[in-house]
């Protein structure tokens, strides 16, 4: 048996409403190349862990929820998240290819810290790319995630070209008070995003502390313990600073 016939899945959330359109089954893949200090799923980072699934088992599992995805089946679907789902590229490809062929709407939640080969391989099977930009300044990115952002930003531009103006790219930006909401960072972000051609929307997410307990459990400490959670006010202020971005800006305001 080839190794990629089995995937490591941290967990499955069947009432996903925050990671893509409609009601979604969110599959959290195990493993992540980045080491974000604010990670809220730090227990997904290690390459092994969770439960092992075959493609058959995982497809069967998520398809049990297809009745909740609307009459067309497209008002919801499956979101692959993690960790970073591209960390298990062969398993990811086999999984979403199978689902896509069964008319399931697929969202991928990724940092794009992966190879162009992987991006190109899964491209036909993804309906919406949700790519999170952690920070526009290279140094700060390195501080926050352990890696430079060069490769990620290049991948985003490459994906944007591949998508060929089809609005299938949602850029997510985590508002971390004092870290990602500086005017300099936002100006760079605005300039970067505005040049992209295949944007569906830009989504601002408030940084929350709900993943801290996992850090404490696993490491006894939390690296961003001095940073406060973002409020809606923080998000609104960032939205204001990004007002000239020529795309829909999602802020979670009701």
């Amino acid at each position: 048996m080839k190794i990629f016939n089995r995937g490591y899945i941290h967990s499955i959330e069947t009432l996903g409403t925050l990671d893509g359109p409609g009601l979604r089954t969110v599959v959290f893949f195990q493993g992540c190349p980045l080491r974000c200090k604010f990670c809220h799923n730090v227990d997904c980072v290690a390459p092994r862990g969770g439960s092992e699934y075959t493609i058959d088992e995982l497809c069967r599992r998520v398809l049990k929820n297809k009745e909740y995805w609307g009459v067309s089946g497209k008002d919801g679907g499956v979101t692959v998240s993690g960790g970073d789902p591209t960390y298990q590229p062969e398993f990811l490809l086999a999984f979403i290819r199978r689902l896509h062929n069964q008319n399931v709407h697929i969202v991928i939640d990724t940092s794009l810290m992966t190879s162009t080969k992987v991006i190109e391989s899964i491209l036909p099977y993804v309906d919406l790319w949700m790519v999170s930009v952690k920070h526009m300044e290279e140094k700060k990115h390195e501080y926050l995630t352990g890696f430079s952002n060069k490769h990620i930003l290049a991948n985003i531009r490459h994906l944007d070209t591949l998508l060929d103006r089809k609005p299938k790219l949602r850029i997510r930006y985590l508002v971390i008070p004092g870290i990602t909401d500086t005017l300099s960072a936002l100006q760079l972000f605005s300039a970067f995003v505005s040049k992209l051609k295949s944007i569906e929307s830009v989504e601002l997410l408030p940084y929350g502390t709900y993943g801290v307990h996992k850090w404490i459990e696993m490491y006894g400490t939390y690296p961003l313990s001095k940073v406060n959670a973002a409020t809606q006010n923080h998000v609104n202020a960032v939205a204001k600073a990004l007002a000239n971005v020529p795309f829909q800006l999602r802020t979670g305001n009701t």
Partner: peptide
């Protein structure tokens, strides 16, 4: 847990009932 905005929550709850 039903969505970020009220319209999303309404749609999602209706879809949950339908499902």
């Amino acid at each position: 847990s039903l969505g970020r905005t009220l319209p999303e929550r309404l749609n999602n709850l209706v879809q949950l009932f339908d499902g």
